[in-house]
Design a protein around this nucleic acid. Structure first.
Length: 967
RNA sequence: GCCGAUGUGGCGGAAUUGGUAGACGCGCUGGAUUCAAAAUCCAGUUCUGGCAACAGAGUGGGGGUUCGAUUCCCCCCAUCGGUACCA
């Protein structure tokens, strides 16, 4: 018997048992397939999508379902309002954790992944979500990744036409080369050479292949990658935190390797500009905007004294070019070797080896001012002055062209460099008109700058650009922070690339009839030598019968998640990734709900793939996710006691009210106040970290003994807040302090949803998560508060029963009852549309409280009330709906609509304010006009005590709101 | 540093075309019920003063606009998230 003896005062036999009714309806829904959805041209469609989870071994905690509950309520609401709702779920099933687990345990990732997925399916079905599981997809399914590979092949076989702003087949490019070489070609490319049709034709097949790689949207190149020796793999930037791998915290170095890349930079402008079209939060748009990082400036060529080559730089401040007194190259810049004179050779060599000895972390964190002169000079193209070329670590190889013109007068870093190495500084911007402006502010008049003298900075930039174009020195360009995306991973548990190499090393895409390239089975997941993928061990697989060899890298996890929302539209299709019929019906995702941690990587890739498919005419929409909601995190409450350890005798003392500047002398004893499970004092848990005594399972001030394995200290908390150390009772009162933070095992504040559901039922859990606060906000979980929701549900069910028996009246409802129900219908409808689920719950609580006071049990009231609560409490509402005598599911019924005529008020209570301060209230008939109200207020005798004889200067009557008297 | 979000009782949070600040819930206090407890029900609960009626203060801080500001404007502070030698 569960804890729900809540139909109070009635026989145990008559009680509703949550677990019984939940399993009853869960199987009913499953048998009838009531959440299955098919294309139906007669209904408007709506697509509600959750970010599919990575099925980790740990299962779900209370934070995970938050977004799923919200989207489920929304989907159910839409469904009951007559929409054909696509609401699917699946799994992001490829990824590093399963492979790591395999390395530790020898359990094949395919097996552990399947197990984890089963567990997730079970947990998700517990929560009563209305997913159409018949549409489930998981990314490690060959029937799914066949199409991931196919899209990759399409990217491989296309290039980007900048003039038309769309992707085009690589065949068009070859044709252009055959007839015109690079002449007149506007394409997104890493190729820097121009060539003629004749020289193109003279290239060997291998050379042609290499040249095409500079244009393909999926291409291979040698690049510096984030290499993690410990994990034996290349990592994406977002897998690195503070220069260490996110998983495990291992060092990451830069290593040159041949890798697959996606030319996402070709789409940079569209990815940025189209953010205007989507309904996403400001912070998400800002994050993507920053990540793409477009800045407008000038590409300029500086002649190098005594060399053919020119030095290309990028600057946003061409207005300062007369102040450019030297140039700086990144130490890795291609021209460094050529430009280094014999005199400087040794110094440069030493400097470069110094830079290489530093890890990326050190270089980023130290921000040292270092550099060395190459011995060469460039000519400033605007004033023909010779300026020295330096190399310095503050110039990054990856941004712009890896070379800058240095203007020490107007750039902090250049200034620091110039001061250190005694390079000249020429003032070129006069900011005397802007006394508050700092070095960064783009304002001022240009001085000491030839033809630009006297111009405002912004005009000078325009003039500078014009001058550069006229004299063939450069052009205005946009530059992006975003880099092409590294798409190769040297690991097992991912999609194999659909690419093979012939005897000449020329790459060929595997065509559709031979897809998928299945991931070969093996039990050897160890990384190959020198950063090779584990697949490289499998000689039989790598070496094909026709003499070709296979690519052994695999795709990153983000590959499978870049298009899964399209596969849900037509998950079984074995002819296409999804049929055009289905895609045109479902269009794109109307509402996407998920965590902000995917703000950049996943959402950017998915948008990029979608735009590519749009260019190919395969999807009808330009953006995949119209509206996006980031659910907040559910945080844990971290409770702790402060303890001070004496350095003399190693004794601990507890402390209260420690001044903040002394906090560092104290250690935190983390404690866990667990109100859900019963505390079992015979099994204390403990752990120490850095001498800090942490944690214990502890309920209020019940007794518990804690041990520290390090210092063999026994701390005992007893009722009343007494602290005992080593068995001796210390007469020390302590104070618990609490803070709010991430749920984590190490702080013992993780709440498991299963426990909560076991005690309170799924509906209660769902409603409580919604009631906690606004969906996008992070907020702490507090199990105590769930009682309020539990009471609400009991009162709700109570409306239908008397002495444990169903007790519904067929009588007509009173005006008062009708007003209550129509008020709540109006409010809940609006709140769901606004994603304001917490206030919807609160409105339902108010309605139930009021109906309860009236003893309302009329069918005319309870029928719409059940349908109203159905999206929130799918199980209880289904049970009550059937008890009301309905044959089909409440979830297939219609959502109630309010009738405004029941909401009309006869009288309105007006607050009467004097100078904005409320003094009293008065009721007026709703149809009274402003003048009548003003007259009656002026006649109110009781006003005198606040007026103190002053006369009323003005009366402001806001209809239906308030009255304000100005004296 | 830059970008973004947030700041309201003991706690989670309501209220914005500017119009009764603190809905709803937790917690707490008192009462009913009970042998007792749990559960339940009723009442109270922003702070300060007062037995009370009531008065004053009050939405991170300081200014401003307005008859009236949690809401609009300016400056500042704090917390969280992102990003960072980006030329």
């Amino acid at each position: 018997m569960s804890d729900f003896c809540w139909l109070l005062g009635i026989n145990a036999d008559d009680m509703i048992d949550y677990q019984d009714i939940e399993s009853k309806w869960r199987s009913y829904w499953k048998e009838r397939g009531i959440y299955r959805v098919e294309r139906d041209e007669s209904k408007p469609k709506y697509y509600v999508l959750d970010m599919f989870p990575y099925p980790s071994g740990a299962g779900l905690h209370v934070g995970h379902p938050l977004g799923y509950i919200a989207s489920d309520i929304f989907a159910r609401h839409k469904r009951m309002n007559g929409y054909n709702v696509l609401h699917p779920m699946g799994f992001d099933a490829f990824g590093l954790p399963a492979e790591e687990y395999a390395l530790q345990t020898g359990i094949h990732p395919a097996i552990s992944t399947q197990e984890n997925m089963s567990r997730y399916r079970e947990q998700l079905s517990m929560l009563g979500f209305s997913f159409d599981w018949s549409r489930e997809v998981y990314t490690c399914d060959p029937n799914y990744y066949r199409w991931t590979q196919w899209i990759f092949v399409q990217l491989f076989e296309h290039y980007y036409d900048n003039a038309r702003q769309k992707a085009r087949p690589i065949g068009d490019l070859i044709e252009h080369f055959d007839h015109h070489g690079t002449e007149g070609l506007e394409a997104s490319t890493s190729n820097k050479e121009e060539f003629t049709a004749a020289s193109w034709k003279a290239l060997s097949p291998r050379e042609k292949d290499e040249m095409l790689m500079h244009y393909r949207l999926a291409y291979k190149k040698i690049g510096y990658v984030n290499w993690c020796e410990e994990l034996g793999t290349v990592l994406a930037n977002d897998q690195i935190k503070d220069g260490l791998s996110e998983r495990g915290g291992h060092p990451v170095i830069q290593k040159a390797m041949s890798q697959w890349y996606l030319r996402i930079t070709a789409y940079a402008d569209r990815l940025l500009d189209d953010l205007q079209e989507v309904d996403w939060s400001n912070s998400l748009v800002a994050m993507q905007t920053n990540w793409i990082g477009r800045s407008y400036g000038t590409a300029l060529y500086f002649p190098i004294v005594g060399h053919e080559e020119q030095l290309e730089i990028f600057t946003t401040r061409i207005d300062t070019i007369f102040g450019a007194t030297y140039m700086v190259l990144a130490p890795e810049h291609d021209l460094v070797e050529q430009l280094t004179t014999d005199d400087q050779k040794e110094e440069v060599r030493q400097y470069i080896s110094y830079v290489q000895s530093k890890t990326e972390i050190e270089r980023m964190s130290e921000k040292m001012v270092t550099g060395v002169f190459t011995g060469s000079y460039a000519k400033n193209p605007f004033n023909q002055e010779d300026i020295p070329i330096w190399i310095g670590e503050y110039v990054l190889k990856d941004y712009g062209t890896g070379a800058i013109m240095a203007v020490p007068s107007d750039d902090e870093r250049d200034q620091a460099f110039a001061k250190k190495f005694g390079l000249p500084i020429i003032d070129v911007i006069d900011k005397s008109d802007y006394p508050d402006a700092g070095l960064h502010d783009k304002v001022g008049k240009v001085i000491n700058s030839g033809f630009m003298n006297g111009m405002e900075l912004k005009d000078a930039i325009e003039a500078g650009n014009e001058y550069a174009v006229q004299h063939g020195l450069g052009r205005a360009v946009a530059n992006f922070k975003m880099r092409d995306a590294n798409f190769s991973r040297q690991r097992y548990w991912g999609e194999p690339f659909p690419v093979v190499y012939d005897q000449d090393g020329i790459s060929h895409a595997v065509q559709l009839e031979n897809l998928p390239v299945e991931l070969p089975d093996t039990n050897d997941f160890k990384p190959g030598k020198g950063g090779k993928s584990p697949l490289a061990h499998l000689t039989d697989w790598v070496e094909m019968k026709n003499g070709f060899t296979r690519e052994t890298d695999t795709m990153p996890a983000v590959a499978g998640s870049s298009w899964y929302y399209l596969r849900y539209m037509d998950p079984q299709n074995d002819q296409e990734f999804a049929s055009q019929e289905n895609i045109h019906y479902w269009q794109s995702v109307d509402l996407y709900v998920g965590g902000a941690e995917h703000a950049v990587a996943h959402l950017l890739y998915a948008r990029f793939w979608h735009k590519f498919l749009f260019d190919k005419g395969l999807v009808p929409t330009n953006e995949p996710f119209k509206k996006l909601i980031n659910q907040g995190m559910i945080q844990g409450i971290i409770e702790h006691i402060l303890l001070k350890k004496d350095s003399d005798n190693n004794e601990f003392h507890s402390a209260q009210l420690v001044p903040s500047d002394e906090l560092e002398n104290y250690t935190k004893l983390y404690v866990h106040i667990d109100l859900v499970t019963n505390y079992n004092s015979s099994e204390p848990s403990y752990l120490t970290r850095d001498g800090i005594l942490e944690f214990c399972k502890w309920r209020k001030f019940e007794q518990a003994t804690f041990k520290s394995p390090d210092c063999d200290l026994k701390v005992r908390l007893s009722p009343g807040g007494q602290l005992q150390i080593d068995g001796d009772e210390c007469d020390i009162q302590f104070q618990t302090l609490s803070e709010v933070g991430k749920m984590s095992k190490s702080r013992y504040n993780v709440i498991n949803p299963d426990e909560v559901i076991n005690q309170y039922g799924t509906d209660c859990f769902r409603i409580y998560e919604m009631f906690l606060g606004p969906i996008e906000q992070s907020k702490p979980w507090d199990t105590q508060g769930i009682d309020g929701v539990s009471k609400f549900l009991r009162k709700f069910i109570d409306l239908f029963h008397k002495n444990g028996q169903l007790n519904i009246s067929e009588e007509k409802a009173s005006d008062e009852e009708l007003k209550i129900i129509h008020t709540v219908i109006k409010k809940v409808n609006k709140d769901i549309e606004d994603f304001s689920f917490n206030t919807a719950v609160s409105a339902m609580m108010i309605a139930v409280n009021e109906l309860r006071k009236l003893g309302s049990n009329k069918i005319e009231i309870l029928d719409p009330l059940v349908r109203l609560i159905a999206p929130f409490a799918p199980f209880i509402s289904e049970e009550l709906w059937s008890r009301l005598g309905n044959q089909s599911s409440v979830h297939l019924s219609s959502f109630p609509r309010h009738d405004e005529s029941y909401l009309v008020e006869n009288t309105i209570t007006y607050p009467i304010c004097i100078n904005g301060k409320k003094r009293t209230v008065k009721e007026f008939a709703a149809d009274m006009n402003q003048d009548e109200i003003e007259k009656m207020v002026r006649d109110m005798e009781e006003l005198e005590k606040w007026l103190n004889g002053k006369s009323i200067r003005k009366v402001i009557v806001v209809p239906k709101r308030m009255v304000n008297l100005v004296v």
